[in-house]
Design a protein around this nucleic acid. Structure first.
Length: 361
DNA sequence: TAGCCGTGGAT
DNA sequence: TATCCAAGGCT
């Protein structure tokens, strides 16, 4: 089967089976851009409510460029990879200054914006502007590695370069057809096929429109392709968090810029050694002599690196020597905690706190 | 190049 | 429970 036939099959399949997603109902590059950033390493189902809320709060590019960072963090809270939201605003400001507030259509200009790599630039240019630019995300890597029998690490080296070539050949073919918005549809069809049919495990080859052309299917290598290099194992780490309540106000701290959960808020916490079965005792020991009111509430299970409040900042805050500009620690009214952006286990602690007099975990 | 950067869902 | 993975980018 030739590439032209593959493209036709994919387009026909996509026309029938594409999910009705809200960002597919618009051609506004701003809205599509926001969806692409949110969707990086994030599932569609997770993104949906965030995207809707974002577009209501910040309906156009100028609103994003001028928004207070705290508002953006709150809108992004829980989505993860928080550098994305900061890059989003930086890019919006660059567009305001260098592109007169109009989202650029030139691929290289789009690619140059912070937070936009080769994939995202291709996605925006093809989906919003129907340009023949290839996309290669996790879905497309899987589809093309199987369809064309591409061995090797699809995320690096020669295999990756080959997959980009294949993706480009297909989208160029789509551009040559009469199909309306063929580039936009072709790229999305590859991603949609990977999401709905050509799944990582137990792919539904019986439903695949291009199984007749699929090298992996023909040679019985669907399960082996794409190759997956071993991922680096995360090192489990535990942290003990404290909810310190003084007359209805709670001690929280803003994390520094750079590193994990940069600039988001957290409850004071200390790391507990893996061998310590009694996390509270270990945390007490780590903190030294504690005020009577300081009662540990929850253990933060974490598998990420670098996640630690400085004890100096914590102790200074407790003694009332808080200098928010440096330590970032504050006493905040319980109700006002809602207005701050927390991440990870701290979000769960906050929910627990607001659910009432919950039990310590 | 490979490790960092979050979170939730699926198996 | 352990592992993988999701519309990746950056360094």
């Amino acid at each position: 089967m030739k590439n032209g036939d593959i493209v036709q099959k994919l387009l026909a399949w996509f026309a029938r089976h594409a999910r009705d997603l809200p960002w597919r109902r618009t051609r506004d590059p701003y809205a599509i851009w926001v969806s692409e950033i949110m969707l990086q390493q994030t599932q569609v189902k997770t993104v949906l409510p965030y995207w809707r809320r974002w577009l209501r709060a910040l309906p156009h590019l100028a609103a994003l460029a001028d928004a207070p960072p705290a508002t953006l963090h709150k809108l992004w809270e829980g989505l993860g990879y928080y550098a994305r939201v900061r890059n989003l605003q930086r890019a919006a400001q660059i567009i305001q200054q260098q592109h007169h507030g109009r989202f650029p259509r030139d691929f290289d200009a789009v690619r140059a914006l912070p937070g936009i790599g080769r994939y995202t630039a291709g996605a925006i240019c093809s989906i919003a502007f129907n340009q023949p630019r290839p996309v290669l995300d996790g879905n497309v890597m899987r589809v093309l590695a199987r369809l064309y029998g591409v061995a090797g690490n699809p995320r690096a080296g020669r295999a990756n370069a080959r997959l980009w070539e294949l993706a480009e050949a297909l989208v160029r073919r789509a551009a040559g057809l009469r199909a309306r918005r063929g580039c936009a549809a072709l790229n999305q069809s590859l991603m949609e096929l990977g999401a709905l049919v050509c799944a990582p495990r137990q792919p539904r080859c019986a439903l695949c429109p291009v199984s007749g052309a699929c090298v992996a299917h023909r040679t019985g290598r669907v399960a082996e392709l794409p190759e997956r290099p071993r991922r680096t194992r995360p090192t489990p780490r535990r942290f003990m968090a404290f909810v310190v309540d003084r007359h209805g106000r709670v001690l929280v701290r803003q994390r520094p810029a750079g590193g994990v959960n940069a600039r988001l808020w957290e409850f004071p916490n200390v790391e507990v050694a893996p061998g310590d079965s009694d996390a509270r005792a270990a945390a007490r020991k780590a903190l030294g002599r504690l005020p009577a009111a300081l009662e540990p509430l929850a253990v933060l299970p974490h598998t990420i690196t670098r996640y630690r409040i400085t004890l100096a900042a914590y102790r200074a805050a407790w003694r009332g020597e808080t200098t928010p500009s440096r330590a970032g620690a504050r006493w905040v009214e319980r109700r006002a905690l809602n207005q701050l952006a927390f991440a990870g286990a701290h979000r769960k602690i906050l929910r627990q706190l607001q659910a009432g007099p919950g039990k310590p975990s």
